[in-house]
């Protein structure tokens, strides 16, 4: 706290939250820089939501401490935290209009009616929902509800905005559109966004920092390219984009020093030189093909551009692993 530059928006130190025998969050250390777009990525049940609820104040840690902009949060109820949440199911108040939903925060803070209604209109304009003030949440589409939830959470000008799988309920096209909008909104407002997702591509495309969760622990934190290119563990390599995990024995066969490696499929070249193998399965993905090739007793996933033509199962191919393509992991 003495050095304001080092102040974290959110800081976890040894935070645990257990439910009976379930270690939902287990000794987590975490620093989220002010203004970051921070993603918590991990499979279902890995403790992401619980972490978010700890920041919001819906849960209290069993051990460890949480600070928000340097202020300790022990015993601070949610309504005293300058943090707002976009809930997974949006949690819009069904008995209120859209306008009243958005104006709820200022209302409970005692802001006069005219002022808070004007403010709610501004926020609705921000999420491109002008003129929807008098509708009920039930009369909105999923994407519109999502925007209302966003406007409602932003009206209090929180220092940290929490989003729990905010795009999970939307269809693919809307989801891609909202990804872009959320990203640009965050840039404009400069608020710290903490964003939970189990979708690695969503995390990679939106966040400027990613924490990968597994079984209540953070297994790696870093910039998207770092996590993607240089996974530190087998779990990260596998979960973030299905990298090839090369076991020590196989590494030797591939001519690498003995060790555990991650080898991204798109880094391997299919061509005239390299190890000989046969195509085992092939999966057409539009712009590319994902092919599993058997090299001796090893199996490697390879990505081939679609224009390279079909790769029938059983056809003989050669794989070339460029120097430096494999990334050595810890374990």
């Amino acid at each position: 706290m003495t050095d304001p530059a080092a102040l974290s928006a959110v800081r976890f130190r040894g935070v645990s939250r257990h439910f009976g025998a379930t270690r939902a969050v287990d000794g987590v250390d975490l620093d989220i820089a002010p203004g970051a777009f921070f993603a918590m990525l991990g499979p279902s049940g890995s403790g992401k939501t619980t972490c978010l609820r700890l920041i919001a104040g819906f849960e209290q840690p069993d051990a460890g401490s949480i600070e928000i902009f340097g202020a300790p949060m022990t015993g601070v109820p949610p309504y005293r935290r300058s943090v707002n949440t976009v809930f997974q199911d949006y949690a819009l108040f069904p008995h209120m209009t859209v306008g009243a939903n958005v104006a709820y925060g200022p209302m409970v803070r005692g802001v006069p009616r005219a002022e808070r209604e004007a403010r709610a209109r501004e926020l609705l304009a921000l999420v491109a929902l002008s003129g929807f003030e008098d509708r009920r949440p039930a009369q909105l589409s999923g994407g519109q509800r999502q925007r209302v939830a966003l406007a409602r959470a932003l009206i209090n000008e929180p220092k940290v905005l929490l989003l729990d799988e905010p795009l999970g309920a939307l269809d693919l096209k809307l989801r891609e559109q909202m990804q872009v909008e959320l990203k640009s909104l965050q840039r404009r407002l400069g608020i710290t966004f903490v964003f939970v997702t189990h979708d690695q591509s969503e995390a990679l495309s939106m966040a400027d920092r990613i924490a990968v969760f597994n079984e209540g622990r953070i297994v790696q934190v870093g910039a998207p390219d770092e996590v993607y290119e240089r996974p530190q563990t087998r779990f990260v390599a596998d979960f973030v984009g299905g990298s090839n995990v090369v076991e020590p024995d196989a590494a030797e066969r591939l001519g690498l020093p003995r060790g555990l490696y991650s080898l991204r499929p798109e880094k391997i070249r299919l061509g005239e030189i390299g190890f000989a193998g046969t195509v085992e399965t092939t999966l057409y993905q539009g712009a590319q093909r994902r092919v599993v090739v058997a090299v001796g007793s090893d199996r490697l996933a390879v990505v081939a551009p679609a224009e390279r033509g079909p790769l029938p199962v059983g056809s003989a191919v050669r794989l070339f692993v460029p120097p430096g393509a494999a990334h050595r992991m810890e374990g």
């Binding site: 919001a56 104040g57 819906f58 109820p77 949610p78 309504y79 943090v83 707002n84 949440t85 809930f87 997974q88 199911d89 949690a91 819009l92 108040f93 069904p94 709820y104 925060g105 409970v108 803070r109 409602r152 959470a153 209090n156």
Partner: peptide, 16 residues
Amino acid sequence: RTSGSLVEASMDLGAD
């Protein structure tokens, strides 16, 4: 039948 997160949403927005 009512979503449990409504109460949390309210407190999140500053209501005691």
